[in-house]
């Protein structure tokens, strides 16, 4: 019971930090700019106006949410290291896993707020079911990346390094399928050892990173929800990968000397 209270206190202060850091102002301003841009795009389209607007709006929203939340998580954690808040909290009788859970729950609350805001905005262009599925999938994506950001901070202890790794990981996990297809293309087929080595390397990489191209698909908004199993895949993939990154972060946290 006492641990739950401590966990909730850490969660509360992580959310408060977002409010005091004017992070929500940034989210509001970003969403407004993208919404106005999508209206402008609608003026350019000569047909399929709604699909064009929603595709471009969703594309911008997704990138904006992932990058701003990751940056917020990284800077917030680094600030706590620099202000010695991290040492102060852990000098209390708080287990390290409670600290990590508390921080992640706090960031998750912000992620839920962001994906709900996306859902509301998308209702302007898409039906409720498609918008809801897209927003839930975005929440899964955000959960993965906020956990990854925490791991990168524990491991690299630098804003620049951690954010670069997060961006690189995002780009790679969203495009790994295309990279695999290109490397397996018959045009590039070669018997060279170097080519085979790169091919194997890409295939191994695909095993250890999530296939994010199946997440948060613009197609759902533009053409409606299809009856496939992508949604189950997304939920299970998020569950498995979040646990993996969480445990890696916890591993690093337990190794940290105060």
């Amino acid at each position: 019971m006492m641990q739950t209270g401590r966990l909730l206190a850490i969660t509360k202060y992580s959310v408060l930090e977002a409010l005091r850091d004017r992070f929500l102002h940034l989210i509001f301003a970003g969403f407004l700019i993208f919404f106005l841009s999508s209206i402008f795009v609608g003026e350019l389209a000569i047909t399929e106006t709604l699909q064009t607007q929603v595709s471009i709006f969703a594309f911008l929203l997704r990138l904006f949410c992932v990058f701003t939340l990751s940056l917020f998580v990284i800077t917030s954690m680094i600030r706590q290291f620099n202000d010695k808040g991290f040492e102060l909290i852990l000098s209390q009788p708080i287990p390290r896993y409670i600290y990590l859970f508390g921080k992640l729950f706090g960031y998750l609350v912000i992620a839920i707020f962001m994906s709900f805001a996306c859902f509301v905005c998308l209702l302007a262009y898409a039906d409720m079911l498609s918008s809801a599925m897209w927003s839930v999938s975005l929440l899964c994506e955000l959960l993965l990346f906020l956990t990854l950001s925490v791991l990168c901070v524990f491991t690299l202890e630098s804003v620049t390094l951690a954010f670069s790794v997060v961006i690189g990981f995002y780009a790679l996990s969203r495009s790994i399928e295309i990279i695999q297809l290109i490397s397996d293309s018959p045009i590039l087929e070669s018997v060279d050892l170097s080519h085979r080595f790169i091919d194997w390397g890409i295939d191994i990489l695909a095993y250890v990173i999530p296939s994010l191209h199946r997440f948060t698909q613009t197609e759902w908004l533009a053409y409606g929800i299809q009856a496939d199993r992508d949604y189950i895949y997304i939920l299970i993939q998020t569950f498995i990968y979040t646990i993996l990154i969480f445990l890696a972060a916890l591993y690093d946290l337990y190794r940290k000397e105060l």
Binding site: S55, F59, A171, R174, T218, A222
Partner: peptide
């Protein structure tokens, strides 16, 4: 274009078309 758009080919198609 699929790579540049980070796998979002639907949005890439719209950008290219416009």
């Amino acid at each position: 274009y699929r790579l540049i758009s980070l796998g979002d080919s639907i949005s890439a198609a719209r950008f290219v078309m416009l």
